[in-house]
Amino acid sequence: MEGVNDVTPTDQDWLVDFRGVELRRGGKTLVGPVDWQVELDERWVIIGPNGAGKTSLVRMAAAEEFPSKGTAFLMGEQIGKTDMRDLRALIGISSAAVQSRIPENERVDDLVVSAGYAVLGRWREEYQDMDFSRADEILAQVGATHLKERTWGTLSEGEKKRVVLARALMTNPELLILDEPSAGMDLGGREDLVGYLGDLAMDPDAPAIIMITHHVEEIPYGFTHAMLLDEGKVVAKGLINSVLTSENLTRAFHQPIQVDRIGQRYFARRASL
């Protein structure tokens, strides 16, 4: 990665500090260059069409990818000068990639409690009663208490989303990353989850949150900032009300989009011509 020497230190209130960051694969730039800072109390949503670079950007913020270019700090540590494993311990992730690695026969309560050891597939680790109590509490918060004795392979897609979210919260992360957390849920399940995430976003003791979604309807109340991506480039970023406009979404999705705000929620549709 370029730019790891002789750089200005980051602000300690920034959990993510990207300066001219790019991610390239096979000679193609997947995302960037991006300048982006995420503070301790911010809740970000990243929106864009398929192939816009959302997941590539978030994988760097999750310490799962090294930037190909630019300077990146996570949790105050400069990427390229610190152990990425230490950073990952401070980040909770809910994503399809995590789901794909979970053993089919893993019990839900074991899956959540084992987050403390950063393992998928409980084996010989020893846990205390307080660990199981916290797992029960978090499962209740995400509406998944009734799933605790089920195995992973028996869950629906929506149920899996809830359980992976509970696992991501188990370790009290400093940064919570949600990659399409309500994908695969029916309307009722989605609204339940959006409500929970809204309450979490409003909690001053909650971690900073970065969420990817394709749909503005899935953005919980309490989110403070937004970034629009298209073809790896930033269309707009900043305070959510200034980013989620009809003009900006029209640019990002290359068709006329009308955005409305009803209460604390956003709704989008193709504009009538």
Rank of each mutant, 00 (worst) to 15 (best):
V21K: 00
M75L: 10
A183Y: 11
M170P: 14
M75R: 04
A72H: 10
E39G: 08
S114T: 00
E39L: 03
A166L: 03
G53P: 11
E180S: 04
R167Y: 02
R24H: 12
R24C: 10
F253G: 07
S246L: 03
V142S: 06
L197F: 11
R19M: 00
R124I: 02
R25Q: 13
V38D: 02
P207C: 01
D6N: 03
P49Y: 13
R190M: 11
A118D: 09
S100G: 08
L197A: 07
P256T: 03
A252V: 05
A97R: 11
R43G: 11
Q37A: 04
T10Y: 12
T82P: 08
A118W: 07
A96S: 13
T224W: 15
P256A: 01
G20L: 03
P207S: 01
D17H: 08
R101H: 12
L90C: 05
P103F: 00
L139K: 05
T224D: 15
T71Y: 07
R265Y: 14
I177A: 02
A236V: 05
M130C: 05
V216N: 15
T151Y: 14
E157L: 01
G3L: 02
V34L: 12
A271F: 04
E159L: 02
I209A: 05
A201Q: 14
G27L: 05
R107T: 00
K160P: 11
T224C: 13
R101G: 08
L229H: 10
M211W: 15
